[in-house]
């Protein structure tokens, strides 16, 4: 199991609990969607698991604490949480994925350059490698962040709303790339809002609403949401 959570309690400043989960196991199947209404704790689950949000409880990746397996986990934050105004190229962003393997000065060796080139090619970004990432379309920016995760050789990808603010063509393109990554052996856990394509693209789903409501196949989880009258979000 890629990610195991026990007795998780996420509380931001002010002390109000935004998410409580007794036990949750994620990432054993190819692509897992985390769904739920706004404020359900979807992003908080990912952030708390990655020590990016205050939490209590136990989180383990492949049975080990995060500190021991950082390089095996990649996180793609929500688009609003990335500074797109920083004048950096696509290639440089993808190179950042190699940082956990580099020495103190973060200088890339020939092997690292080859891995970066391969990641750029895999995500079909060859034409944009020297473009400023902040000037690309939303779909290309998401592809760049995925290329960074690929260059990191991460086995588990935690993605926070990777399809948000993308048009339908860009959404299809990113979903196709996610499926290709999954076929390549990556495990993908993804906060997701488009319920219409849940069954078509995901093998597992988790429904949250401040707590774990349902987990299982997308159809079962959608049925649980329908039963509770929550399909309006």
């Amino acid at each position: 199991m890629s990610l195991e959570v026990e007795a998780l309690d996420v509380r931001y400043r002010g002390g109000v609990s935004v998410l409580k989960v007794d036990a949750l196991r994620l990432g054993d199947a190819g692509m897992t969607a985390i769904i739920g209404p706004n404020g359900a704790g979807k992003s908080s689950l990912l952030k708390a698991a990655l020590d990016l949000a205050p939490r209590q409880g136990e989180v383990r990746f492949w049975g080990q604490p995060l500190a021991d397996v950082r390089h095996r986990v990649a996180y793609v934050a929500q688009r609003a949480e990335v500074d797109w105004s920083f004048p950096v190229t696509v290639r440089e962003v993808v190179q950042m994925g190699r940082f956990p393997y580099l020495g103190w000065r973060k200088r890339l060796a020939a092997d690292d350059h080859a891995i970066v080139d391969a990641a750029i090619a895999q995500l079909q970004l060859d034409d944009y490698r020297e473009a400023l990432v902040g000037e690309l379309s939303g779909g290309l920016q998401q592809r760049t962040m995925l290329a960074r995760a690929v260059a990191q050789r991460a086995e588990l990808l935690l993605l926070d709303e990777p399809l948000a603010a993308l048009d339908s063509a860009q959404r299809r393109s990113v979903l196709a790339l996610l499926e290709a990554l999954q076929a390549d052996g990556k495990r993908i856990v993804c906060v997701h809002h488009q319920l219409a394509d849940l069954e078509a693209h995901f093998s597992q789903a988790v429904l949250l609403d401040g707590e774990l409501v349902a987990q299982g196949s997308p159809s079962d989880v959608l049925e649980a949401a329908r039963t509770r009258g929550w399909l309006s979000w």
Binding site: R70, A77, D83, V93, M145, R148
Partner: peptide, 8 residues
């Protein structure tokens, strides 16, 4: 560029 990924 990406403080959360760097923090991870």
């Amino acid at each position: 560029h990406n403080s959360q990924a760097a923090q991870l």
